[in-house]
């Protein structure tokens, strides 16, 4: 499970992530869109998926969850009423619900997801709750090591270039301590269809 940082900027959202793929004690790096942590969906939606591969493939197989936006902006209501029920069903079918937590009434799926469109960013947490993000959000195994850099140095007044540098540094911080996160790092933004390497 990799680290993904979502950052809301003026008119767009950056999603920065590492590219490591981990299967037990085997580590590779995703060089193709198929294995990436960030999925491009219809209606300009980027989906950052910090989950295992089965859940990621399950989400990738459902662009229909987003195509019915039909030009409307992504809202928390759409996420709660359209996407969360489908995600819940999908993760149940995949057997990705934590059964012990479910017995305690705290049904959790194994992961966290960021949804970005335009200048809007939402986080679907492990308990299926949804938070709209004002400034930034870090998810994934190892994200706690990246928090000090963002919390200590991120300011809205930074330029886009300074922000991208900071995102790369934060991902590097996570890679120092996390066995599931490593360079190269990738940057996606909702304003363009491009993917950039941002250091490491």
């Amino acid at each position: 499970m990799s680290v993904i940082i979502g950052c809301v900027r003026d008119g767009k959202v950056f999603l920065a992530t590492d590219s490591q793929r981990t299967w037990g004690n085997v580590v590779t790096h995703a060089e193709t869109a198929f294995g990436a942590n960030v999925l491009r969906m219809p209606e300009g939606v980027l989906v950052g998926v910090a989950c295992n591969q089965a859940v990621k493939r399950g989400i990738a197989a459902h662009p229909d969850w987003f195509s019915d936006l039909k030009g409307e902006p992504l809202t928390k209501r759409h996420v709660m009423e359209r996407i969360v029920p489908e995600l819940n069903r999908e993760t149940e079918e995949l057997g990705e619900i934590d059964e012990c937590a479910k017995e305690q009434g705290r049904s959790l799926y194994n992961g966290t997801i960021l949804l970005a469109q335009g200048d809007r960013l939402f986080c679907i947490d492990g308990d299926f709750s949804v938070q709209r993000v004002a400034d930034y959000c870090l998810i994934g195994h190892g994200s706690e090591y990246a928090v000090p850099r963002m919390r200590g140095f991120y300011r809205k007044e930074l330029s886009d270039g300074e922000t991208v540098t900071l995102l790369g540094e934060a991902l590097s911080d996570a890679a120092v301590y996390s066995s599931q996160s490593s360079a190269p790092f990738k940057l996606y933004d909702t304003a363009t269809n491009e993917t950039a390497n941002i250091g490491g």
């Binding site: 910090a50 947490d125 870090l138 998810i139 994934g140 928090v147």
Partner: peptide
Amino acid sequence: LYCGYMDQASCLLPEN
């Protein structure tokens, strides 16, 4: 968050 961190300004958004 269960697995992550969100900036504190997000907690004050009306929809949250």
